[in-house]
Nucleic acid binder design. Structure first.
Lengths: 219, 219
DNA sequence: TACATAAGTAACTAACTGGTTACATACTTT
DNA sequence: AAAGTATGTAACCAGTTAGTTACTTATGTA
């Protein structure tokens, strides 16, 4: 028997093509579900965009809703990875908050699909997200909460800070900038997604947060 | 020729029933479009909910999209009225900001349909809102901007404040609380819409804004 | 009463859409 | 080569949905 593995997962020509097809479907579905939502998206459009037959799409993913669920899981995994890497408890609380907010903000900036998917989900009452991704859902919030708690313990953040409110506010300040971008854009001159404007927005957010929750004793 | 007006708009039995039917359709459409979005809503469901025949719905509103447009106009008019009444330039800048933010926040709290309609619209890139309501769209923002400008003029608000950023942030801090309520709710114990929790949230928002943009000279 | 018009109903249609089936073609293993 | 399986295609189906039509019933006016 040759050097190749055999058995469960084949890595031969067919298997590769299969994996590639699954991946292409997921990419197309992410884009189209993000753009049009669960109701607005059309399976035929996703299949055509992925360059694959509808028969195969159903073969791999079962149903429209199941595919939508996979798209959610796939995209929530991204932010889960992010939070694992960027939500670190180092020594300087201000640095901790800055790093976490910056990472979250730029993640959203670079993942418009994620922003839109979560927005559709919010309007759906998180129906599908709750089913498919029970674990990722609040993990980001918990980890960020730890950063705030640590800041309080070290007397850098006001002890009366309502952590849950702060978490919602950070989410709000980051999300809405991208969420309502298309509505805000025509009223502004600059491109809201340019590096300069992104940095302006981020600094504004950080200033708002810090002067709101940080103790001013040391100033 | 009796005392009654005659001609263009009759106010007789038929006309009244007509107006009432139009109103009922608009109410039902508001509720159902808000709940399910343009794609998710069904004309048949709206007609049935309004207790009216589909034929009449098309008679009054022409098409699904036109009805959706009317729903948007109808609901944006509400917030336009609000901004006219609550965005006042009185003497105390802190009071001005507080009054405006409080009015906006409680308007959202009491008009969940409005929150959801604008959220669907944001995901649609404001396509329909732009067509139907060119005037209301940024009016609220402009009037709030004047309040901030006045505060700067009177040295209560930092002169380097980026007004547009603040407006986006205020919107964000108010909107997201309601927008993501269904996702946040299961993680919290209290009812997010209880009077107590609404007040907690509002105070948090005001604290964040003030300590972020107000000059601290006077303290 | 006769007439015009507004308000209403139910059945229908043409297009769409999620999902399926019957059938064909590769490729791997034995 | 034979057999089995993964991959692919196109036509099809049943249910849904926005929008229409032919027809009926009220109501105010002359």
């Amino acid at each position: 028997m040759g050097a190749k593995e055999k058995g469960f997962k084949k890595v031969d020509g067919r298997g590769q093509r299969s994996e590639e097809s699954r991946g292409r479907i997921l990419d197309s579905a992410t884009r189209i579900f993000a753009e049009k939502g669960l109701d607005g998206a059309r399976i035929d459009e996703i299949a055509e965009d992925a360059g694959i037959n509808k028969r195969m799409l159903y073969h791999y993913y079962g149903s429209k809703e199941d595919l939508y669920g996979e798209v959610l899981r796939f995209n929530y995994e991204k932010i889960y990875t992010l939070s694992k890497n960027a939500f670190i408890l180092a020594d300087d609380p201000k640095e901790n908050v800055t790093r976490a907010v910056r990472a979250y903000f730029y993640f959203l900036a670079k993942n418009e699909d994620f922003v839109r998917l979560t927005s559709w989900e919010a309007l759906n009452g998180g129906r599908f997200a709750k089913k498919v991704i029970p674990q990722f859902f609040d993990l980001v919030e918990l980890e960020f909460g730890d950063i705030i708690k640590d800041g309080i313990k070290r007397n850098f953040i006001r002890p009366d800070t309502d952590i849950r409110q702060v978490i919602v506010s950070v989410q709000a300040l980051c999300l809405v900038y991208f969420n309502r971008r298309e509505i805000v854009q025509p009223l502004w001159q600059e491109d809201l997604l340019s590096e300069k404007m992104l940095e302006v927005r981020l600094r504004h957010i950080l200033a708002l947060i810090f002067d709101g929750i940080f103790s001013h004793e040391e100033e």
